[in-house]
Design a protein around this nucleic acid. Structure first.
Lengths: 214, 214
DNA sequence: AAAAATTAGTAAGTAACACTCACTCACCAC
DNA sequence: GTGGTGAGTGAGTGTTACTTACTAATTTTT
């Protein structure tokens, strides 16, 4: 279906057992839900004992958060460079959306973790991994800020609300594909989303008749 | 913060022990995450033995799904009557959004279950509870269909994509409030969302200069 | 009205789970 | 060779979701 499971980037500072544990969780997450993966299963796959998992990770969840961080860091880096490469707020917003959608499309495991597995725990929001979410969130806030400043975007829209709308639209679209194991068509999704966001859904003829949109 | 925990609607056909079990889960969900609630805890709160839980519910998750169904049914009924009460596709869509947001705002437990606790399990999507999600989903599909048919909404937007965008925007906005225990301002959220959806975010002056919007 | 079946609920389990702890072994410095 | 350190082991432990065999009361059947 989607791309074959990408392993985590190699890290020579991490002991071999630790690396194998993290990669095993990635492999297993591709097949099943986090809660139904047991520590025994991870240990078996990584060819270590269960005890070693707890040498490197304080809890099973902590292991999950650290895996997420590795994957998320790549995503954040990629988005940062993509939005730096274009000019104009509309273009930057489109680049942000396209790269986000492409990241979800490119890593099923990343998508599953961030969209499905971490939100229901309060502990996530105090973990280091959540720092990356805030970084990600700030990028779009800045795009919107500048767009309103430059009069590209309407003045009467709250940045906070808009950010939630955009994230929600991106995430929910990708989530549906992840859950039902459908491929994500990056161009189509990005196109539809930008169309709605930039122009709204009201038909132009109707708007003129009703005088709703000058 | 939000409204005090609403219990499930009384059901005289349900044995007292069964009713107490479901209400206990609702009470406990208001305070903590589903995964950290134990069956022993539920039984203690409901003043029954653990065994009785498994007389009425096949698994702990199954209990959760049945609680969700009771709450969701009320939501679906409410939305159905609200959108029937107005005319015009813009108005119906606005009513749909407002009532959805109000439902999330009105029941923290309902919001937590549907936005955080059930999505990560494949079993949810084969449960009866998911039938209500499909019913909910069909309501908006119909509004969009009719709106495009009536030329109130633009012709070049895919209903499937648009539905994901709208759901995502509603859910993500409410999710953030639920997670950070903030109140949901139904009017403000609805207003912002409809503004963006109906008109888009592009500033009118800029659109004219660029000729992007006739 | 006795017998049979159904319903509401109990009590004592069990396998599997996340997690702990005391330990070994190999390597390196001095 | 002694002491220290980091990688890894393996046999625990308390809890957890879930099971099973049972009772006691009410309702249904005959």
């Amino acid at each position: 279906m989607t791309t074959s499971t990408t392993l985590l980037p190699a890290n020579p500072l991490s002991p071999p057992g630790r690396t194998r544990i993290m990669n095993s969780l990635v492999r297993l997450l591709d097949k099943k839900e986090f809660n139904s993966i047991t520590t025994a299963e991870i240990a078996r796959d990584a060819q270590v004992t269960e005890g070693l998992i707890y040498k490197y990770f304080s809890t099973k969840k902590d292991l999950l958060y650290l895996v997420l961080m590795e994957l998320f860091q790549q995503v954040v880096n990629r988005i940062e460079s993509e939005i730096a490469a274009v000019d104009g707020s509309h273009e930057k917003l489109q680049a942000f959306i396209r790269t986000s959608v492409a990241s979800y499309a490119g890593s099923r495991v990343f998508s599953k973790i961030i969209l499905l597995e971490v939100r229901n725990s309060q502990s996530f929001f105090t973990s280091n991994a959540y720092g990356l979410v805030r970084q990600y969130s700030k990028m779009i806030a800045q795009i919107l800020d500048e767009g309103i400043e430059a009069r590209e975007f309407a003045q009467d829209i709250e940045i906070g609300s808009l950010r939630e709308i955009i994230f929600g639209a991106i995430e929910h679209t990708c989530l549906t594909c992840i859950i039902f194991d459908r491929d994500i068509d990056v161009d189509r999704v990005t196109g539809q989303l930008c169309k709605v966001l930039f122009r709204g859904i009201t038909d132009n003829g109707w708007a003129k008749r009703k005088g709703r949109q000058p």
